[in-house]
């Protein structure tokens, strides 16, 4: 087992957004978070990444890589310089292999500021690969990307899971990953005291 969550409650600011989330993630598994906007997908991923403190999350080898809505790319550095920086942070020497795998060789000397949105996303994904983390947490990794770039990202996730990694992803797209399962965020939604108010729902007009 790589990650275990036991009755986790997540807050966004002072507001409790989701409650009693329990799950365990083993090697090879991919968990897909589904739910409408505001249902707590990002909040849950941020808790799992350790950005919010919680004693209800247990990681077994403490290797988690998180990719949020932003790619963490420095526009005034080249692609290679950006990756070299992350290779130094994660103390790995897999940078050249990752550049080759994600087909970033022809862009390696370009400034990251000159890249398209899809290319920047690939650069963000390269950071995940460089990290050598077992568990990937990805928040809408294919937002605003075309089909071929989305396919490349899902192929990388698939390959990561096949190599005894695991991934927790929030996405609206169906993935073709063998050991994937869906976690419906609405099952953990916390009902506010006004949620059943017909006036607020707009029934009375």
């Amino acid at each position: 087992m790589l990650l275990n969550v036991n009755n986790l409650n997540c807050r966004r600011g002072p507001k409790l957004v989701i409650a009693n989330v329990s799950m365990s993630v083993s090697a090879g598994e991919c968990i897909i978070l589904r739910g409408p906007n505001g249902s707590g997908k990002t909040t849950l991923l941020r808790y799992l990444a350790g950005l919010c403190d919680s004693a209800d999350i247990k990681t077994y080898d403490n290797s988690i890589a998180y990719s949020g809505h932003l790619d963490g790319v420095k526009s005034t550095l080249t692609v290679r310089e950006n990756l070299n920086f992350w290779a130094g942070i994660y103390a790995t020497n897999s940078m050249n292999k990752v550049i080759e795998k994600l087909n970033l060789e022809y862009l390696s000397n370009n400034l990251a500021g000159e890249l398209s949105a899809g290319q920047k996303r690939r650069l963000g994904l390269a950071r995940m690969l460089i990290s050598n983390a077992k568990v990937w947490l990805m928040d809408e990794p294919t937002a605003s990307l075309d089909k071929s770039t989305s396919a490349l990202i899902f192929e990388a996730i698939n390959s990561h899971c096949k190599n005894d990694g695991a991934a927790i992803i929030s996405t609206h797209i169906d993935l073709d990953i063998p050991k994937s399962r869906v976690l419906n965020m609405e099952d953990f939604a916390v009902k506010g005291k006004d949620d059943d108010d017909p006036f607020l729902k707009g029934s009375y007009q």
């Binding site: 990444a49 350790g50 950005l51 988690i64 890589a65 998180y66 990719s67 949020g68 809505h69 932003l70 790619d71 963490g72 790319v73 420095k74 526009s75 992350w86 942070i89 950071r127």
Partner: peptide
């Protein structure tokens, strides 16, 4: 640009 979040993890 999201680097701080990535560094924090």
């Amino acid at each position: 640009d999201g680097t701080l979040e990535a560094l924090a993890t």
